[in-house]
């Protein structure tokens, strides 16, 4: 079982990102589970969301404490101690940032903000970071993510997010 923890700020779409990832992995034939850290929803406050992906049915209901992957949507969160809380030796941090950080864990940084501003015209990076996750880890193929975006969003929003995910995926693939 793969466990993922996403960190963002209220309104940045960490919860939606984990929902889309779970749905995409589900389309890919996996058992999945996604849930938020059920905080009081406030715009701008740090939020966490979780996703589990497995070949077997998932019954466990506790939060994720030792994630295999951490996805950070907002570079300003990089100083929070909870980003690296519970990380294992081979855990990987995927962070939206234009510079490298001094995490002791294996870290992959990608400037999703610049890409999102280019494609969407807005600093919304949750879907872009799913493209990064798919590209770097290969755990979920690109196609089901695109299908879920089509289902989840309408018209232009779906189209632009698909472009964004595809570009993030292609730029990070196999890294």
């Amino acid at each position: 079982m793969i466990e993922i923890r996403a960190h963002g700020r209220g309104g940045q779409g960490a919860v939606t990102a984990m929902e889309i990832l779970a749905k995409a992995a589900g389309l890919d034939g996996k058992y999945t589970q996604a849930f938020p850290n059920f905080g009081v929803e406030r715009r701008g406050a740090p939020v966490r969301a979780f996703c589990r992906i497995s070949d077997e049915p998932i019954t466990i209901r506790s939060q994720v404490y030792e994630p295999d992957y951490v996805i950070v949507l907002d570079p300003s969160l990089s100083n929070l101690p909870e980003i690296s809380s519970g990380l294992k030796q081979d855990s990987v941090i995927l962070i939206n940032s234009n510079n490298s950080h001094n995490f002791k864990e294996k870290t992959y940084h990608f400037d999703a903000t610049t890409l999102a501003l280019d494609v969407l015209g807005k600093d919304i990076v949750n879907t872009a970071m799913l493209g990064v996750f798919a590209g770097v880890t290969g755990l979920v193929p690109l196609e089901p993510i695109l299908s879920v975006l089509d289902e989840r969003f309408n018209g232009k929003v779906a189209e632009l997010n698909k472009q964004l995910v595809e570009r993030a995926y292609n730029e990070t693939r196999g890294e």
Partner: peptide, 12 residues
């Protein structure tokens, strides 16, 4: 059904 743990959790 448990609030959040079931109501807000995405699963198959």
């Amino acid at each position: 059904l448990d609030g959040y743990l079931i109501s807000h959790t995405y699963e198959p």
